[in-house]
Simulated scan of single mutants.
Amino acid sequence: MPGSATAATGQFRYTYTTAEGYEAVGFLNDPPSGECIDLVGPGSAPGSVSRAPRNHTDATATVFLGSDCEGDTYYTLLPGRGASERLLVRSVVFS
């Protein structure tokens, strides 16, 4: 019998720059747990990096500089915490 899907409750936010050079905020509402999510801002250049993640969920978020939650550069955000504008991210997974 398959298990039920779990999700983090709340919102995860990040900042990105559009292809036109404007600052924008992206967000994930109640993101799934245990699944890698690539952070792609609408209208952003392909492969661009996001920054300043804010974890307003009830789960721990691990953000990665690399896509597909890969690479040795990552940072863990506890529930309700954010990081500085300098933290660059391309993907996130919630636990």
Rank of each mutant, 00 (worst) to 15 (best):
A24Q: 08
T62L: 09
G26C: 09
T60C: 02
M1D: 07
P32V: 00
G21D: 05
Q11P: 00
T76S: 11
A61S: 14
L78K: 13
P79V: 06
T73W: 02
G26Q: 12
A24W: 01
E20F: 01
P31K: 02
D58K: 13
A24P: 01
A59K: 15
Y14T: 04
M1A: 07
F64N: 06
V89C: 11
F27V: 00
A45H: 04
C36K: 05
G41H: 06
A61Q: 14
G66A: 11
T15F: 01
V63N: 12
G34V: 01
L78P: 01
G47M: 11
G3V: 11
S33L: 07
T60L: 03
P31N: 05
P79K: 09
G3L: 14
G80R: 13
C69H: 05
T15E: 08
A83K: 11
S50L: 06
N29Y: 13
R13M: 03
V40S: 12
R86H: 03
G43S: 09
C69Y: 10
G34D: 00
E35K: 05
V25I: 12
S33H: 00
P31E: 02
T17F: 04
R81V: 13
F27R: 07
R90G: 03
P2I: 02
S67G: 10
T76A: 10
V89P: 14
M1I: 04
L39C: 07
Y75N: 09
T60Y: 03
M1V: 04
G80L: 09
S67W: 15
D72K: 14
D58Q: 13
V93C: 00
G71I: 09
L65T: 05
S33C: 06
V25F: 09
A5F: 00
R13H: 08
T9N: 10
S67Y: 15
V40A: 13
D30T: 12
S33Y: 00
A52N: 12
V25Y: 10
T6R: 08
T15V: 11
G34Q: 03
T60F: 05
L77H: 12
E85K: 00
G82E: 15
F12K: 08
E20D: 07
L77Y: 12
E35L: 01
G82C: 13
S50Q: 15
A5Y: 00
S95C: 02
G82L: 13
A8S: 09
L39R: 09
P46D: 09
G21E: 05
